[in-house]
């Protein structure tokens, strides 16, 4: 899947709107992909605050887990009890978190202009853009690869016309990717990266 004309011109447009240092930072693309995942306080983009950000590089057949990026973010408001249950992140866990602006800056340094990979990536990117737009003057210019879309294409080639279940656990099982022991942004980003490696070897990567 190569970037189509629309995606290319969109990226160009956004790049032109960027100011330094972001322009050169987000202009670099070394062919490495970055799997990202955020944990947020809500599933509605408008209400959502970022609680943690994880990113891990996919370089050829390697997931660079050792050099992954992970940070907790100090929330503006204490997260509700609901989310403590979902994420297992307690208020005390955020005391070590970075202020949002700093976390985002480090995140941008990590991803550079690399293509992003994620599961329902649109949502994560939308929440990130909500906070990045004031910083950058525009939204993230990076190309995006939706892992469930790649999975759909692969599955559809085998079962044309069939209903294709895109649930997280279904994809994990069908691609024979291990269930990692815990659920956090880091492990989810890592799981997506493994899914990508499997799909890539079957001809459904970015090529």
């Amino acid at each position: 899947m190569r970037a189509n004309l629309w995606q290319k011109s969109q990226r160009l447009w956004r790049m032109r709107q960027l100011q330094e240092p972001y322009r050169s930072l987000l202009g670099e693309n070394d062919g490495v992909l970055v799997s990202i995942d955020c944990e947020t306080s809500s599933l509605k983009v408008k209400e959502a605050e970022i609680l943690s950000i994880a990113a891990v590089c996919i370089d050829g057949r390697r997931v660079c887990a050792r050099d992954a990026f992970y940070t907790l973010v100090k929330p503006q408001q204490a997260p509700g009890h609901e989310n403590v249950r979902i994420h297992g992140l307690r208020p005390i866990d955020f005391s070590e978190g970075l202020p949002l602006q700093e976390a985002l800056r480090k995140f941008l340094e990590f991803i550079g202009g690399r293509t992003l990979v994620g599961y329902y990536l649109k949502y994560d990117v939308a929440v990130l853009n909500k906070y990045l737009k004031p910083m950058l003057g525009t939204v993230l210019p990076n190309y995006e690869v939706e892992i469930s879309g790649r999975y759909y294409d692969w599955r559809f080639a085998d079962y044309p016309g069939a209903y294709i279940d895109l649930r997280w656990d279904t994809i994990i099982d069908n691609l024979h990717v291990p269930h990692l022991p815990r659920h956090d942004a880091m492990n989810d980003a890592m799981t997506v990266a493994m899914m990508y490696l499997v799909l890539q070897s079957r001809g459904y990567g970015v090529s």
Partner: peptide
């Protein structure tokens, strides 16, 4: 991060296992 509950990794202490786990990459 990774399941290190099988031999020989079950002989590691939890801090050792956590550190080792964090130093790992994944290959396919």
């Amino acid at each position: 991060r990774f399941d290190l509950s099988h031999p020989p990794f079950d002989l590691l202490t939890l801090p050792e296992a956590s550190a080792l786990s964090a130093s790992a990459d994944i290959l396919f």
